[in-house]
């Protein structure tokens, strides 16, 4: 992944910056230029809540190359407090403790790295609360 491609997503990945449709209130994460609900092109800055609940989840036992050292790891679809859904790893958790509806909060974690010499890529992961 090029550095620029990583860098331009920093506001979303580090700070959960989103856009809120000025017309209908739809929250776009990541930001969008057009509201998928009402077609409005006006958005206000919005920051997602960092707590939520698990909608569904899985434990990845066979991972892509970048994540092969981390298996088994848990991934879930998380519905944050503002009803926005994201895909995130569920870190530090025994799969037996993960339940649909379980409460989580987001933490800042290392997500990937480009080998031993490349850039380290950070972002959000969920942890059980």
């Amino acid at each position: 992944m090029s550095v620029a491609r990583y860098w331009r997503e920093i506001p979303r990945r580090y700070r959960l910056e989103a856009g809120k449709c000025s017309n209908c209130g739809y929250i776009a994460f990541p930001h969008r230029l057009v509201c998928p609900e009402c077609g409005s092109r006006k958005f206000e800055d919005y920051r997602l809540k960092d707590t939520g609940k698990i909608v569904s989840f899985t434990t990845i036992e066979v991972g892509p190359t970048e994540f092969s050292d981390q298996v088994p790891y848990n991934v879930g679809i998380i519905e944050l407090g503002d009803e926005v859904r994201i895909t995130a790893q569920i870190a530090d958790a025994d799969p037996k403790d993960i339940k649909i509806g379980g409460k989580v909060k987001l933490e800042f974690r290392k997500i990937q790295q480009d080998g031993h010499a490349g850039v380290i890529k950070y972002g959000y992961k969920a942890v059980l609360v």
């Binding site: 990541p30 569904s56 892509p64 981390q70 991934v75």
Partner: peptide
């Protein structure tokens, strides 16, 4: 796996380690 994963959202799904079996696993669990 990486080539197939390009069918998912690279920045907001795949970046976080999800795979296609993982996506369908979440559909299955739901």
């Amino acid at each position: 796996t990486a080539a197939l994963a390009t069918a998912a959202d690279q920045e907001y799904e795949v970046y976080n380690g999800i795979t296609f079996p993982g996506l369908y696993a979440m559909i299955a669990r739901a």
